[in-house]
Write a protein that binds this DNA or RNA. Structure first.
Length: 385
DNA sequence: TCGGATT
């Protein structure tokens, strides 16, 4: 999303080509390998739904392409939002940077730059940093990390609801993996100057190794939209204001209100399994829709606190409760570390305020089994009396 | 009875 790119202020240090090349054609180095440092480009922030063919077509409009590749998830085939283009002529690579870098495509602003030579030493050099002071800027963070090596990219994630307040979480990509390792050794668990809390520094998850839940989130949202259109209008048709003694029949094992919600939204009975509802849709067909009408699971949104869950509660119950009201980007059941039982509460993040408000109005006081849920927007602080 | 955060 363009707003995200701007708000997180990513910068990339120059990593332009080095070495020599002839005006035309690939450069053959003494060891026989091809030096494509002046022809090979990396393209970032491609729209999720752009295909390999569209990618090739776009960059082929500049000049003859030696090879190009849209990088996709090994399992789902989903675009990872970046790719490589290797031109025959270095002049075309230069031209592509000048004419296509910064191009706006749908909600993205693409970035076109020279690719660093592929090598094992630059892999897994990306760090995930959390616990940063909210006041720390991207520049501050770079300053802190730059003592360990050359920073390729850095980013601090910001809250999109409160217009740009740091989430205290960020990424640092070093040029070399060993630099990243040194930064972990030197900074993990350390307090930055003047900070109250230590930061956590670890290797970032590979975006391709997205959690099953994050993947489900994307599929779920897409499928829900596909089947029902915008949920906004549908949810407003329901007036589910349960109260004590007014919930589903306790003698009936089925959960009538929930079933009604799910039936109306999806035309199926509630089920702990998520996928069966969407079985008519294949991963492939959903993949092509991903990124359309979606903001994507970014962590931003309206956070909802759910209290009085049973010790056996799991994530699926939260999906089922809140999913019918609109876009849910995240659910979390808080568990005791040792017993792994639910501590009685959880969180749900919803993208749209209206849908979150409707979910709260409908589910607060809702009877789930023999418990009455309390549902509200999450408070920012724990107020202890 | 209000976490942890993965571009």
């Amino acid at each position: 999303m363009v707003t995200q790119i701007i708000s997180t202020m990513e910068t990339q240090v120059s990593n332009g080509p080095s070495g020599t090349s002839l005006p035309n054609g690939p450069v053959i180095s003494t060891n026989g390998s091809t030096d494509d440092s002046k022809t090979n480009l990396i393209v970032n922030y491609l729209p999720q739904n752009m295909t390999q063919e569209e990618f090739k077509s776009l960059f082929g409009s500049i000049g003859e392409i030696e090879s190009c590749k849209l990088v996709r998830d090994k399992i789902t085939g989903q675009s990872l939002g970046y790719g490589f283009v290797n031109y025959v002529d270095p002049n075309d690579a230069d031209k592509a940077i000048n004419t296509l870098n910064g191009l706006k495509l749908q909600t993205k602003t693409i970035k076109v730059s020279y690719a660093r030579p592929s090598s094992a030493s630059i892999r897994d050099a990306n760090l995930y940093v959390s616990g940063l002071p909210k006041t720390m800027s991207q520049k501050d963070m770079e300053q802190l990390f730059s003592q360990y090596g050359r920073i390729i990219t850095s980013r601090i994630l910001v809250d999109q609801v409160t217009a740009g307040i740091s989430r205290g979480v960020g990424f640092i990509r070093f040029d070399k993996r060993n630099e990243a390792e040194e930064a972990i050794k030197g900074l993990n668990g350390q307090k930055p100057l003047g900070a109250a809390e230590p930061i956590t520094v670890k290797f970032a998850n590979n975006p391709s190794q997205k959690t099953g839940q994050a993947l489900l989130t994307q599929l779920y949202q897409t499928a829900a939209r596909r089947y029902t259109g915008p949920l906004h209008h549908q949810t407003q048709r329901f007036s589910v204001i349960p109260s004590l003694g007014k919930g589903p029949d306790p003698n009936n094992s089925s959960n009538t209100i929930l079933d009604n919600l799910l039936n109306a939204s999806y035309g199926v009975k509630s089920s702990p399994a998520l996928f069966p509802r969407f079985s008519p849709i294949t991963i492939d067909s959903m993949t092509s829709l991903a990124g359309v009408n979606l903001t994507g699971p970014t962590g931003a949104g309206w956070c909802i606190f759910v209290y009085n869950l049973s010790p056996e509660a799991d994530e699926s119950v939260l999906w089922q409760l809140f999913g019918p009201f609109g876009a849910v980007t995240n659910v979390k059941v808080i568990r005791d570390f040792t017993t792994n039982k639910c501590k009685g509460f959880g969180f749900v993040t919803m993208t749209n305020y209206d849908e979150a408000a409707m979910a709260i109005a409908s589910l607060n006081g809702y009877r789930l089994g023999d418990r009455v849920l309390q549902v509200s927007f999450k408070t920012s602080k724990q107020h202890k009396a």
